[in-house]
Design a binder for these strands. Structure first.
Length: 278
DNA sequence: CTCACATGTTAAG
DNA sequence: TTAACCTGTGAGC
């Protein structure tokens, strides 16, 4: 679940549920108990996402900084008759009379200052989901790097919010080999990828899923049987290794790059060949 | 039921 | 490079 779209969706839901209200803050699991006591009863002004980081702003410019990591969840429930007892290891619970939100398994849950929040933002690249994002900053990071574009897309200091699913799918949609060096891209290629990301991820915020298959390639349009992926969306290559490419039929390949699984089609995303020699 | 692995990142070795 | 975070899902027995 937790790529950038998930965090932006969560920020929206938290703001709707708690924005402008005094919130009961607790830590049933205990690891956030001291901080929760300091915040208990304070007004939550708004929640905001920056890449995969989430910040909930409380009175006096205090922020709860959350990063879900790989396994974290933050469940927001509104319109309840009564707030139920916590289930499992709830590190942070926000609650009002009619809403509650439970955080479990997060890699970061901390009470931070505005300065600390600004530091996280400063270390992040532009976020395609933010209207104030500057794609040229990301291009600068891509253009000067000899690292693979498949690694740069996941580098949160180059751009913020892309995870393994969006990486695999964006590269497929642009027919780009994951190992192509960043400094071999043309600016037009990067602009097209960035523009595509802003649309795809904004759709992801609305739907809560990652859907990347174009209408002309859906199973229905291709006369194939419909299919459902683990994560609930329709994708071209993510975790489809060994299965036929939805466009050309060749087997989807997989490899590990910097500790993360990579997926691509060898025919649709041919290896990049430098023009420098020969 | 138990086990491995996952849309992520940091810190220790 | 590996463990930790410690949830959720799917595969396999």
């Amino acid at each position: 679940m937790p790529e950038g779209h998930t965090l932006h969706r969560l920020a929206r839901d938290l703001t709707v549920a708690f924005g402008g209200q005094a919130v009961s803050v607790s830590s049933p699991q205990g690891r956030f108990a001291d901080e929760a006591a300091l915040l208990d009863g304070a007004v939550l002004a708004e929640a905001e996402a920056w890449g995969k980081h989430l910040f909930a702003r409380f009175d006096d410019d205090r922020f709860v900084h959350v990063h879900l990591g790989l396994i974290g969840t933050f469940d927001v429930r509104t319109g309840v008759d009564a707030v139920p007892p916590p289930v499992g290891a709830v590190r942070l619970r926000l609650a009002t009379a009619s809403s509650y939100a439970d955080l479990r398994g997060a890699i970061i849950c901390a009470l931070v200052t505005a300065e600390q929040r600004a530091g996280v933002v400063a270390r992040s690249g532009p976020d395609p989901l933010r209207t104030d994002a500057d794609p040229d900053r990301a291009w600068a990071g891509v253009q000067r790097s000899r690292k693979a574009i498949g690694a740069l897309l996941m580098d949160q200091g180059v751009l913020a919010g892309v995870g393994n699913v969006y990486r695999a799918e964006l590269l497929f949609r642009h027919r780009m080999h994951p190992l192509r060096p960043g400094n071999t891209l043309r600016v037009g290629q990067w602009q097209a990828m960035w523009d595509d990301l802003t649309v795809l991820m904004a759709e992801g915020v609305l739907s809560g899923r990652i859907d990347t298959v174009r209408p002309e390639h859906t199973p229905e349009a291709m006369g194939r049987e419909a299919r459902r992926d683990d994560h609930g969306g329709e994708v071209y290559v993510y975790r489809r290794h060994g299965q036929p490419c939805l466009v050309c039929g060749r087997k989807v390949l997989t490899a590990v790059l910097e500790g993360r699984n990579l997926f691509w089609c060898s025919r649709c995303q041919p290896a990049f060949r430098s023009r420098a020699v020969g």
